[in-house]
């Protein structure tokens, strides 16, 4: 099957230092290549500073890569101009780790969810409103909550709101940048379930960025391990975790508090 998004030898270099003293180049991404099939999930794991979030920003067209190609919908979106990107951006959406800081506190839930539609000037006001309410309901927020502001929601509800907003333009690819990491265990399970449900009903493709290897193994079809800007290992979870080849993968597996395996938790294992 044709991949939804294909990345070829992507590089992103940042310059260290300021002003004239900007000689030192830091490679945040170095020769990164991968593809994600439509409707599947690729988990990107790695330590902080390994380049996961830079990759997310490049895919969402928020950062221009230094070199390399990103094939999406038959076009190399890394080479498009701003005007052309306007048509691409709605199809790739982001959900961040901390919804409290990524959502506007002065907007109501409905305004948050419908703002992308208003900006893209797609529909009339009534239609937009109806779609917004439907979206809120889809992610498990009731009609009465539509008028509330971000501060009145709990952490899990805020993340539902962020997901609803990301879905408002019916994207094909959703980039989940540590979207579950800041949540409590019981809330994390609920949001993970919601994402799985949405994936099967809207045939969504996910790039799931995380440092939680156990969640990655449960949630994704494939895992890619990043280390210092490179993808050092990629494969299906069983294989990758069963016999990790690269040092970075081994470190991650060892650091995962997976020692809970040895305990006999009811319902698990």
């Amino acid at each position: 099957m044709q991949p939804l998004i294909q990345v070829e030898s992507l590089r992103k270099h940042y310059r260290d230092g300021k002003g004239l003293d900007s000689g030192h180049v830091v490679p945040a991404l170095d020769e990164v290549s991968f593809a994600i099939a439509p409707g599947s999930t690729l988990a990107l794991v790695g330590e902080s500073g390994s380049g996961k979030s830079t990759l997310a920003l490049c895919l969402a067209c928020l950062e221009r890569p230094t070199s390399g190609r990103i094939w999406f919908g038959g076009r190399n979106i890394a080479a498009l101009c701003e005007k052309q990107l306007r048509a691409v951006r709605p199809q790739i959406q982001l959900v961040f780790q901390d919804p409290a800081s990524s959502l506007n506190p002065r907007f109501t839930a409905l305004e948050i969810v419908t703002e992308p539609l208003v900006l893209q000037r797609i529909w009339k006001r009534r239609q937009t409103r109806e779609w917004g309410v439907a979206l809120l309901e889809r992610v498990g927020l009731s009609m009465e909550m539509a008028g509330r502001r971000v501060g009145e929601f709990s952490g899990g509800q805020r993340q539902r709101l962020a997901i609803a907003r990301a879905l408002s333009l019916e994207p094909k690819l959703l980039i989940l940048d540590e979207a579950l990491s800041a949540l409590d265990c019981s809330v994390q399970a609920k949001i993970a379930n919601l994402l799985l449900e949405l994936q099967s009903s809207f045939a969504l493709t996910y790039l799931f960025i995380t440092h939680d290897l156990a969640m990655a193994a449960h949630f994704a079809d494939e895992i890619a391990v990043m280390d210092r800007g490179r993808i050092v290992e990629q494969g299906i979870p069983e294989k990758l975790l069963g016999s990790p080849q690269h040092e970075a993968t081994r470190c991650l597996v060892a650091a995962t508090p997976g020692s809970i395996v040895t305990l006999n938790i009811p319902g698990v294992c």
């Binding site: 399970a189 993970a192 156990a214 949630f219 975790l241 395996v261």
Partner: peptide
């Protein structure tokens, strides 16, 4: 406590191939 522990994703034991991408139990 029992319900909370069930919410965790299955540990990395390799044997959970069948359960992958299934719903996690919730409270």
């Amino acid at each position: 406590t029992q319900a909370l522990l069930r919410c965790l994703p299955p540990p990395l034991c390799g044997a959970n191939v069948v359960n992958r991408k299934t719903k996690l139990p919730v409270i």
